[in-house]
Nucleic acid binder design. Structure first.
Lengths: 143, 143
DNA sequence: ATAAAACCTATGACCTGCTCACAGGTCAAA
DNA sequence: TTTGACCTGTGAGCAGGTCATAGGTTTTAT
């Protein structure tokens, strides 16, 4: 397979295939006649694996570590389980944060119903945002 | 105020103040004696506004648009309301996606209990991830 | 047979929103 | 007066690609 064929098979941008190749996630052979890269079924597996892992929140570096371990005939799965657990905790944190943000946005939106737009007057930029309560501790002002 | 004072007052990194100044969000005056930037209370308001807007998911470009409108003595709030609505919808999308991801991760984790680690054998890299169902349509393979 | 379209190559810039590093100038306290 | 803490501008670095450029190759259409 050539670049675009591989990319199409995996549903990614051809440049992503080239990028992953540069980054060492894919290891195609060369056609000496025209210097084209040649990818095989194994590369397709690696690419699909990489995309799935990325969806799960694994970083490219982690993906490469896993693939390298697989190349060395070590079982990469303990590594996968480990990073997966961490990622799961992260996802839970992200959900919590987003839900809090969502709640604050809804509250703000409701409060804004009653507020006039108002042209900035030198003391305020836009009440809508300035009156947003972000729970951030405000430090001392000294001018 | 000098850079660090402003940064401390707003609870941000001094480099962020310099960065925002470069990007035109802050417009300090110069001390001709030593070429230092001089920030006033208005800059502090702008900086705090910018940080709050960033927390709400506004991009730096949007923040600058709002601040520029405020400089032109137009009311920026209709713009704020508009972008805010869009951002709210985005947050809801993100929450949904993350919740689906979370559910799939939990399911996968449960399924993995029964799977052996297994060294890669040339046909599979790591069953744990390859058996992950991502609902992604898989295209035709041609080698 | 030839010309145009569609592909390939490598390299590097661009995106976001900062953060950090560098080299050199300025200013306060000890 | 020296040391440290600050200031200046510029440029690089992060992640994970995407896009642009310039030139070579292969396929398709005329």
């Amino acid at each position: 397979m050539k670049v675009k064929e591989l990319a199409t098979s995996a549903g990614v941008n051809p440049d992503t295939v080239r990028f992953y190749t540069r980054e060492g996630l894919l290891k195609p052979s060369r056609n000496p006649d025209n210097n084209y890269q040649h990818y095989d079924a194994e590369d397709l597996r690696r690419l699909r694996f990489a995309r799935k892992a990325r969806q799960l929140g694994f970083s490219l570096i982690e993906v490469r570590q896993i693939l390298d371990q697989a190349d060395d005939h070590h079982s990469p799965c303990p590594l996968v389980r480990d990073v997966f657990q961490q990622r799961l905790a992260e996802v839970e944190r992200e959900i919590n944060e987003l839900q809090q943000l969502h709640k604050r946005m809804k509250t703000a939106l409701a409060a804004w119903q009653d507020m006039p737009d108002g042209t900035p007057d030198g003391h305020t930029i836009c009440r809508l945002i300035e009156h947003w309560d972000d729970n951030t501790p405000v430090k001392q002002v000294e001018e």
